[in-house]
Design a protein around this nucleic acid. Structure first.
Length: 808
DNA sequence: TATGCCTGCCC
DNA sequence: ATTCTGC
DNA sequence: GCAGAATGGGCAGGCATA
């Protein structure tokens, strides 16, 4: 059954590479041994040992990362869609397949094109000589020693300092503007363009800094809107102002604006993988008849906000109208970036963190210019570093550009901290955790340190603010305001507040709760709650809170205190309330066995696993927004050889977007139902693939493309893939959970009406050794679903009393 | 009024 | 959410 | 290790449309 295509270069190449699997860290053997064996939900009872080829495929880290050679160099440059690729033989084929004629690009003669070409060439040739940091940008051999990193950081800072102590180069005509004038949108997009042309983070940051310095210098009143366009937002997260524009409406707007049919736009999109490029490529010439006034940053921002605020009947048409009007005014690359902004992804390697750094650097640099006493290189460098730290820290406590940017302009970096700090009523960025692949890894990291394990509840993160005036605010993990979703907290919270507690911010998990059975419910239940206009009376799904941290108390921020202290304060000032509020179940386990037991218990109780946290010493403070290594998450499916895996058939593929242009970006999977002889769709999958694996999958599957869906593919009500395949390729896929699906048909009828799908599916490895018909059976999937049902908590809990509540 | 698509936001 | 990758 | 960019299931809510 494996066709030729299947065992082409992929397997061979992989096997060859696998010959020298120098292991960086013991991954498989040791860890696997320490865990109970993965529950195989598969057709073969005997656990088939992965072949070498498989292994390498599924765990690139074990092989490639270990070798000192830059194995990755053979990959295509990630963000270039064409030029880099075409130089590599294989890419050519694909271009034909997906792009049709390649000459599209050459035929254009509009302004802006030249620049584009230039950029592309640069990307392809990795020519960085134009970088603001100068040609001297180190040819980074790999260097990952701590010292070296330190050095690099220092150097980097100095370099950045250098850039701004030099006289700035003369601006290009359209991208410069006079002081006091609105910042031209073209100036911003030109900056985006430069940023898109490199992958070097320092360079990216430097380009943006350079631009922001200009803005501060010439038109500081535009800084806020500029920054918003850079991070692709319209307002702080907690203000929930959304564009309400997606791919569909955008394609409509592009089509209408360029005089193309929707179908044409869609086809282009599939080929090119970027709507911005689509719009850019298909601009009609007619608009150039009259040159409208150039777009400005503030103008674009204001229009976007208008789009967001448009609602009600015919709102979609009106939104499209605004967008079309904007598009008509776009020149050159503005089109591309405008569309990308609307898509919500700039995709130029620039996102919030980098913007923050650049903003800080720009502020420092601007001050530096104003104050005539030029500092030394070193001084400026350390100022820059300091500024970045301050701005990042401030922003994580007050994630609002509306507040931080003006404060930065008025008070400067030096006084920013006093001007902006943790304020109840405004969310702070939550502390995040790193996944952990083995219990031994936990011990490695926390060796000799005091740490605690807590249940990782399967609910929704809830940062709850209780203000002095008795009002309550609830924020999600992403700082969205969830207050209206949980009206019951207003009456519930006071019950768990002890005397003398006037205000606080707690970090907690809100979990769906079965009041009858007194037990946790699945996440899926929680998500059925209404989100708007919720009245306490018609809340159907009750929620239980599990608090695990205290960030602010009676007017004092507690972020700097260690977790042990915060936890004491938490327990001193709040109290459990049966069925409503409790402290996260915790245990200060310290051995592999102890952790393992607690982990098993957490899962039996319906949790996802454990969180492991430093209690004291370095890393035990609350570090907003840091996916800190000081908090670890331990889930059964992370552990080598543990968790449910399935062998599924690849029956469809979607064209990739962005850096996955020219390969399939995601795949549709099915299980085989022997009884009906159908392939039942179970989920899509889009993660777990190395870049190289994606290419190989493309090569393998492309020849298996079908003109039409097979009659025996049962896609349920799911949206079909871009292309269907012959049922031939089998993959092992890992999932955290199974869910009853409203759209998929797998195992339909075995657990009620609905089919079953996978939560957090990811690719593990190819199963050359299995044919499609021996993939995981529906019954096995149903079995796995039944197995995961949460045990009733009743047995464990006695009755009433705080000791008992403390259990949960 | 019912249904279905799209979007944003949880995980 | 998970995962991969360049810096 | 960080930051960014690919990608998942599934829900409510808003709108368009049948």
């Amino acid at each position: 059954m494996p066709t030729e295509a299947k065992e082409t270069p992929f397997t061979l190449a992989k096997a060859a590479k696998g010959d020298k699997p120098v292991k960086k860290r013991e991954t498989d053997s040791a860890d696997a041994a320490e865990q109970s064996p993965r529950k195989k939900v598969k057709t073969d009872e005997q656990d088939v040992k992965p072949t070498d080829a498989d292994k390498v495929d599924s765990k690139p880290s074990t092989s490639s990362s270990a070798s000192t050679k830059p194995a990755a160099s053979s990959f295509f440059a990630p963000r270039s869609s064409k030029p880099a690729e075409s130089s590599k033989g294989k890419g050519k084929e694909k271009e034909e397949l997906r792009n049709g004629s390649a000459d599209e690009k050459d035929g254009k003669d509009e302004d802006g094109d030249e620049e584009m070409e230039e950029v592309k060439v640069k990307r392809a040739g990795k020519d960085a000589s134009e970088s603001p940091s100068g040609a001297g940008e180190e040819d980074e051999e790999e260097a990952s020693d701590d010292e070296k990193e330190q050095e690099q950081e220092q150097e980097a800072a100095v370099k950045i300092a250098d850039i701004f102590t030099k006289a700035s180069k003369p601006d290009k005509a359209q991208t410069s503007w006079k002081a006091g004038e609105p910042v031209p949108y073209a100036a911003l997009t030109a900056t985006f363009s430069k940023i898109a042309a490199t992958t070097k983070r320092l360079e990216i940051s430097a380009y943006l800094t350079e631009f922001l310095v200009n803005v501060i210098d010439k038109t500081p009143e535009d800084l806020l809107k500029t920054v918003y366009l850079c991070i692709n937002r319209l307002a702080p997260e907690y203000e929930s102002i959304e564009l309400g524009i997606g791919e569909s409406l955008l394609m409509k707007a592009i089509g209408e604006s360029c005089g193309r049919t929707l179908a044409q736009v869609k086809a282009e999109y599939k080929k090119i993988g970027d709507l911005g490029e689509v719009a850019f490529n298909s601009r009609t010439r007619q608009k150039t008849l009259f040159k409208s006034k150039p777009l400005t940053v503030r103008g674009v921002f204001d229009e976007l906000k208008k789009v967001a605020k448009t609602s009600g009947k015919d709102s979609q048409g009106r939104k499209v109208g605004i967008i079309k009007a904007l598009l008509a005014k776009c020149e050159g690359e503005e089109t591309k970036f405008l569309i990308r902004s609307l898509e919500g992804k700039l995709r130029i390697g620039l996102a919030e963190k980098t913007v923050l750094v650049s903003l800080a650097h720009a502020a420092v640099t601007a001050e530096h210019y104003k104050a005539d006493n030029k500092k030394s290189r070193g001084q400026l460098a350390s100022q820059l570093e300091f500024g970045a730290e301050v701005v990042k820290a401030v922003f994580s406590e007050i994630p609002s550009y509306d507040l931080v940017v003006p404060a930065l302009l008025e008070k400067g970096v030096d006084n920013l901290k006093e001007a902006c700090s943790l304020t109840p009523g405004i969310p702070l960025k939550p502390m995040l955790a790193k996944p952990t692949k083995a219990i031994s890894e936990v011990l490695d990291r926390f060796e000799g340190k005091q740490f605690t394990c807590e249940y990782k509840y399967d609910g929704e993160r809830a940062q709850i603010h209780y203000l002095e005036d008795g009002s309550v605010r609830v924020f999600s993990r992403n700082s969205e305001d969830m207050t209206v979703k949980y009206p019951e907290f207003v009456t519930q919270l006071p019950r768990c507040i002890k005397e003398g507690t006037r205000s606080f911010v707690i970090d907690a998990e809100a979990v769906a709760w079965d009041t009858e059975e007194k037990r946790l419910l699945e996440f899926q239940k929680l998500s059925t709650r209404k989100r708007k206009d919720v009245k306490v009376e018609d809340v159907k799904v009750k929620v239980h809170l599990f608090a695990f941290d205290l960030l602010y108390l009676n007017g004092e921020p507690l972020l700097e205190k260690n977790l042990r202290e915060r936890r004491v304060l938490l327990r001193e000032h709040l109290q459990p309330v049966e069925g409503e509020f409790a402290f996260a179940q915790s245990e200060d386990a310290s051995t592999v066995d102890g952790i393992q037991l607690f982990l098993d218990k957490s899962i039996k109780d319906g949790c996802e696993g454990l969180m492991v946290k430093m209690l004291e010493g370095e890393g035990s403070s609350y570090e907003p927004s840091r996916r800190s290594i000081h908090w670890l998450k331990l889930k059964k499916d992370y552990l080598q050889g543990v968790g449910d895996s399935f062998d599924l058939v690849v029956v469809g593929g979607d064209y990739g977007k962005g850096k996955r242009t020219n390969v399939y970006g995601a795949f549709h999977l099915a299980c085989y139902d022997a009884e009906s002889g159908t392939y039942q769709l179970i989920c899509k999958i889009g993660t777990g693939f190395s870049d190289e694996a994606l290419k190989q999958h493309y090569d393998t599957l492309k020849p298996l493309e079908l003109a039409q869906k097979k009659a025996y593919y049962d896609v349920g009500t799911a949206k079909g893939p871009d292309v269907y395949f012959e049922p031939r390729v089998v993959w092992e896929v890992l999932a955290a959970d199974l869910s009853l699906s409203p759209i998929y048909s797998a195992a339909k009828g075995l657990c009620g009406d609905r089919g079953i799908s996978l939560r957090f599916p990811r690719f593990i490895r190819i199963r050359d050794d299995k044919d499609p018909e021996s993939s995981t059976e529906p019954e096995q999937i149903a079995e796995a679903y039944r197995r995961q049902s949460i045990q009733s908590g009743g047995g464990k809990k006695g009755k009433g009393g705080t000791a008992d509540d403390d259990f949960w």
